[in-house]
Design a protein around this nucleic acid. Sequence first.
DNA 1: CTAAGAATGTGACGGCGGTCACCATTGTCA
DNA 2: TGACAATGGTGACCGCCGTCACATTCTTAG
Lengths: 242, 242
Amino acid sequence: MAMAYNFHIIEDCLKCTVREQRLFCDLSREALIRLQNIKATSVYPKGAMLCLEGQPPRGVFILCTGKAKLSTTSSEGKSMILRIAEPGEVLGLTAAVSGTPYEATVETLEPSQANFIAQTDFVHFLREHPDVGLRVAKQLTHNCKCAYDEVRSLGLSNSVPEKLAKLILRWAENPLDLPVKKPNETPLRVTLTQEEIAQFIGTSRETVSRVLANFRKKGWVRVKGATWTILNRRALENLVTT
Amino acid sequence: MAMAYNFHIIEDCLKCTVREQRLFCDLSREALIRLQNIKATSVYPKGAMLCLEGQPPRGVFILCTGKAKLSTTSSEGKSMILRIAEPGEVLGLTAAVSGTPYEATVETLEPSQANFIAQTDFVHFLREHPDVGLRVAKQLTHNCKCAYDEVRSLGLSNSVPEKLAKLILRWAENPLDLPVKKPNETPLRVTLTQEEIAQFIGTSRETVSRVLANFRKKGWVRVKGATWTILNRRALENLVTT
DNA sequence: CTAAGAATGTGACGGCGGTCACCATTGTCA
DNA sequence: TGACAATGGTGACCGCCGTCACATTCTTAG
């Protein structure tokens, strides 16, 4: 099956034009040159598993293009989304640094490009380049913050409507979106299914459906396929207490 | 009020005998010498606030003796415990590394000793000593893992009994406890109030009280003041699905 | 030792949301 | 194009647990 990906593949990290805006990639010239040698670039279809929770660490992935979801699963098969990774993030870092099994399963949400670095290469890379250590710290800090946000969302919110509103508003912060700007309307692309949204905010699929239906009935959001439009931001904000 | 602390104060990091077993403190000789110069040792009573969520970072604390709870509070005043820090951990690290406000409020649970390092000193310390970077990474990794455990506990557990059982079993993993070993009885010191336990597992104080009463009635645990004894570990494990 | 306050125990009640069941709609592949 | 899977919508039911209220026990300062 010859699948065409409609994005440009970044072969050479030194020539990458978006490097500076990214969490990890803005490294010194020497580090980039080394990186160029130890990385293996791959392109994945939507739904590809980069690594599995509980597996011994093989290395890390630097996400160049696309999004990926990090999730964890209970023995009963119930699963929970930890966060959505954006381009420029390093995945599998905790495992690679501490040598313990992967904390989460990583699955691409869209066709994506990622650079793989094998465990031993990465450890050397980290040792030899001080600025890499700094970037690693930044990424780990970011992971912590996301996790704490998630804890706050799960533990401090009172109701599902509140959590969903909070999630929608978080998504709306992203400036990178459709330019269909009518005044007071914020459009956003939602790449998650309702099932996944439920796993993200710790509820059931049915409840997400119901709450969202309610938001629509009240005229707070419009839903057209994967494009949601916030029509009444104020109303959503009023739901959020935290 | 002259309060006597009944633990030995560790003045000199170089002479610290427990250094190797600790998450952060096992540094190179050079780093330790430097640390000795930039740290300020203090002793705090139970209930002291080391730092407050939302405040700009002043520096980091290395916890030498005692325990501290990290918590976050919603605007409604409801608060949530993120984790309990053990001796040898660095607190306030996320804030110090990224220069953003403290993520959590840190409060001592027992009389404690901690070394404070001012923001600028710490950043230099980190830059100049590569092994410090490694330790910082270890601490951040640990923070992430704790946060993920918390997310799993909040999101994947079905019931409060399950979460409480899980928490008790986690505490029981600590080998550092009372030597009152009758066979099949695991004693443990509980330094949290039921209110705090509730904030840890995301439920209400009353429910903790009820569920614990139930565990006692079934003969699974014995509670005598701050000392709890697990009488039937198997039963608790059966409650846990994750 | 005593009194005030913190921590804990317990009953009653009611609502949120999980679960089950089923149908409608959309997407996908041969 | 038609069939099958994946996703989304909705009603009915009911149990867990949050909340309020108050009694009881444990701590601690003075």
